[in-house]
Design a protein around this nucleic acid. Sequence first.
DNA 1: CCTCAAAATCGTTATATCGCAATTTACCGA
DNA 2: TCGGTAAATTGCGATATAACGATTTTGAGG
Lengths: 112, 112
Amino acid sequence: MPTDENPGTQLQQDELLAALRALSNPHRLAILQWLRDPVKNFEEQKVDATRYGVCVSSIRKRCEVSQSTASQFMATLADADLVQTTRIGQWTYFARNEAAIDRFRSSVATSL
Amino acid sequence: MPTDENPGTQLQQDELLAALRALSNPHRLAILQWLRDPVKNFEEQKVDATRYGVCVSSIRKRCEVSQSTASQFMATLADADLVQTTRIGQWTYFARNEAAIDRFRSSVATSL
DNA sequence: CCTCAAAATCGTTATATCGCAATTTACCGA
DNA sequence: TCGGTAAATTGCGATATAACGATTTTGAGG
């Protein structure tokens, strides 16, 4: 049974559902895919995108949506634990949470 | 992109999205999971559930939703190609489309 | 302190989804 | 050809999601 101390390999049903819901939007799905290669898929930024991911402004430009919409997209992905957040100064960087994504994959593979 | 060497192991982006959307509802997600063992998870019916799946009435009872809602759920899953449909007389049986589900798994594993 | 910039949150409108009851369609058996 | 039953479709109200502009919050740097 996955807990904070025990990062299990299986998601709970409600966690699985949350991930599926987060990915059921074309923008959010694309963002998570783009984040596989942030340097290639997003514009230059000060901070190492490979390490910390990309900021809301980069996502906003790539998606061609408003700042509030981009922020909301990332909040949804973060709520589903599919991305992790790093705040540096006035910027918030979002990177893929590969461990959580692997748990999602595992759940899709075995409990679907 | 399905080709001769690679016969449909990957979904197009819109197919992947359709599957994610179909599974982003708790009832539809549960139905697909229940269909892994239709004999155990649904009530008795005339036709071999292992072979043909289960009919709308069985799904309706298991989900405790109306007939029209159950029918709509299955239409959504069928549109996303996650289940296949067999009409026998006045009954429509729904079974998992394991090949399509495997393609979905593969897409989640590699393109997510 | 003040100002600027980035991001989060709020408030709103438009659209989509959910789930139902009612109806229609499809198919069976008498 | 008529009922009866299963499922699909239609139409609807309630709720949820999408996306935006405006505002507030957060932090950097004078």
